[in-house]
Write a protein that binds this DNA or RNA. Structure first.
Lengths: 128, 128, 128, 128
DNA sequence: GTGGTCTAGACCACC
DNA sequence: GTGGTCTAGACCACC
């Protein structure tokens, strides 16, 4: 038995994931102002430096831009935004298929499992 | 923005997950002998107490049984084994649908994304 | 009179400049190991986090790579290395020409000034 | 690796440099009146004491003279003015050559780099 | 021993 | 008030 233990994702990466998700959903649109580093730090209860690291990495990704003294903003880059949604979805789908596969399910069975679960949701709302 | 940071799953839970997965896949069958606690601890490089905790929890789940002086074995309980597979699959499917939904995908779109990705695998093998 | 006061360059950028210069000169070659973050921090008397920031930025530039537990190395990327030398030289030349120009020198005069100074060095060695 | 970090030049020195540069260019000529200390302080947004220090040092350099009740003037000292231009140019050239040399360029190569860049400017204007 | 993450907090520059 | 830099130091993961 070979086990690769999962370590927790660093906090700054989890923050990036959350913000990317909000962009993917359209909760944050190009031009929108993000909370200031200090404000977000207070709200999510982490050190401002941790927020700064997340913001800096997102700047490298060209997802946001910081205007000194003005704040931090989602970049006006519509192309990137739709890419983020696709990329995050693609990753989720692949992770899911790999997991089902590692449980011993075939392609056909995976498809059936998903359809069955989605059918339960038809008409009704998605979980909570 | 509200963020719930993911902590790393405790190692003993990750070990349980791995073993459940092997049972779901059929790599471990009812009656099969598990490695001794000491041996497994050495192989996966964790403290023997951590293995002991994993084994104890699996005994409570009625997944394994310890025979004094003989070792630890997967319980002969066919019903449970297929339950494990279904339960793990169900969890994976629900986690996946929730994630896609949180990215802004509808039921129809989720289905389409899965089918598209599964189609890529037809004929070919699943990801490595 | 409009003056833009020059602030000091951040320490981490000065460290990057120094290392780029060593690469440009060939004092550091692809594959060479850089000092560990802690060691360099001690030697140049700055906080290890400042060194780490410099190293992280150089990784983004694809100039170095860090191997966890092993250390940090100049990337094996000969193309980049010669680019660095050219880029740093180009910047120096342009800065110099702009400065001479702001002092009121024409293209011909700048050329003459450089030649005159270089002639002094012929045969002899460069400054100190 | 030995690094001497560059601190920012004191503001009063940067002011002196700017004024010397204007003199070198001929924007300020012998006999020209400088702004009053108070006025310059307001214009460049620094403490009046900083301006006073800059003016005092330039008086010591014999570059300017203060006439009580009249103001401060560039000294009528044609020799000095051309000296300033030559001295600043000389410094710029030497700094430049040292920098190119520290990047590993020989005398011949430095000359070639400068000529190449100057040629780009022929006919066209100098950078912006 | 190596790098990676995070905290707590100072001080600065720009607005 | 905003972000940018830096320090001091803890604790962790990987080797």
């Amino acid at each position: 038995m070979k086990i690769n233990f999962d370590a927790a994702k660093p906090i700054y990466e989890q923050i990036i994931d959350q913000i990317k998700k909000m962009v993917a959903r359209g909760d944050l649109k190009p031009g929108d102002k993000l909370p200031s580093q200090r404000e977000l730090a207070r709200k999510v209860q982490v050190n401002p430096n941790t927020i700064q690291r997340a913001y800096r990495e997102m700047e490298v990704l060209d997802l946001i831009e910081t205007k000194r003294g003005m704040g931090t903003f989602i970049k006006d880059n519509n192309n990137l935004v739709s890419n983020i949604k696709d990329e995050m979805a693609q990753n989720a789908v692949i992770r899911f298929i790999k997991e089902m596969n590692s449980l011993g399910f075939t392609v056909k069975e995976i498809s059936a499992c998903v359809e069955k679960e989605l059918n339960k949701l038809e008409g009704g709302d998605i979980y909570e």
